[in-house]
């Protein structure tokens, strides 16, 4: 299997994988979705009672229009910047699993008095400013006069297998590398294919219809239905266009490297246990 990087940005990547089979590429897809660890908020403590005064001097109670469960869930879904070298899983950390330490937990506080909107950027990390959520504009809850929120929250390491909040990637998918050909001897230059192609694969050039962007093709065959004589669309079953994005907790590069290493380790573990069989 060979991988070429077509495009890579901080949070998205597009790859060309060749000399591969669908099951291997699918193993990579599943690893990217469910086996990459990242930090996410897991425990939230809500402080009740009077926790602040509004500008008019009114005492604000620790209460909000949404149920505490909803707020805790929304906090869990916020991407937390993760340094995989720095953190252990809590159950693998050097203490009892009920306890926490700075090697397995990031602690946040959030204190805001209404009227206001509470954003992800209002989370204050105690471990250091590098753990402030990069996406600062996610609304968590809106507060009106007399309402306030004061919470402490702990983020721990987990994987997408356990809960979707620990899923690093989204939109992970691949397609066969498309090849689109026009048989010029049978093409009538009716230009219907240019009109109906949803991915803008065809273009007119010097009065002839040509294949302009073959990589855009989604193998939907709409053009073949319209023009079965001259257009031929095929997918190469050993070559794939693979794309994914991350939620910002890890970069696309880190995620891909971790996934490939993780897959190799798992295959190696399998090989070892098979070789021990008699």
């Amino acid at each position: 299997m060979q991988i070429d990087v077509l495009e890579i940005e901080d949070t998205r990547a597009k790859l060309l994988i060749y000399d591969a089979d669908p099951f291997i590429v699918n193993a990579l897809r599943r690893t990217l979705m469910s086996d990459i660890p990242k930090m996410a908020i897991e425990e939230v403590d809500f402080h009740l009672g009077p926790i602040g005064t509004t500008e008019g001097g009114r005492v604000a109670d620790g209460s909000s229009p949404l149920f505490d469960e909803i707020i805790a869930h929304r906090l869990g879904l916020i991407p937390i910047p993760t340094d995989l070298k720095r953190f252990n899983r809590r159950d693998e950390c050097d203490h009892e699993p009920e306890k926490s330490c700075p090697l397995c937990t990031i602690t946040y506080t959030l204190h805001k008095v209404g009227p206001c909107t509470v954003y992800s950027g209002d989370l204050e990390p105690i471990n250091g400013p590098e753990f402030r959520p990069r996406d600062e504009l996610i609304p968590i809850v809106e507060l009106s006069e007399g309402q306030a929120i004061y919470i402490t929250a702990n983020a721990v390491l987990g994987t997408g297998k356990e809960h979707a909040k620990w899923q690093v990637t989204s939109g992970v998918g691949y397609k066969y590398y498309p090849s689109v050909t026009i048989d010029d001897s049978k093409c009538t230059d009716c230009r219907r294919c240019i009109e109906i192609c949803p991915e803008n694969v065809f273009e007119e050039m010097d009065g002839k219809v040509v294949v302009k962007n073959p990589e855009n093709c989604s193998l939907c065959n709409t053009c073949v239905d319209e023009c079965p004589d001259s257009i031929k669309v095929e997918g190469d079953r050993t070559k794939f266009i693979f794309s994914f994005e991350t939620d910002g907790s890890l970069s696309a590069e880190e995620t891909l490297k971790y996934a490939l290493q993780h897959l190799a380790d798992r295959f190696e573990a399998l090989r070892e246990s098979v070789s021990e069989l008699k």
Partner: peptide
């Protein structure tokens, strides 16, 4: 209610795009 943090289907964070949108 309030804008969901993530897309229900794919899990992309969309909550932060709501106010600019």
């Amino acid at each position: 209610m309030i804008i969901p943090v993530r897309c229900f289907t794919c899990g992309k964070v969309i909550g932060s795009a709501y106010e600019p949108f």
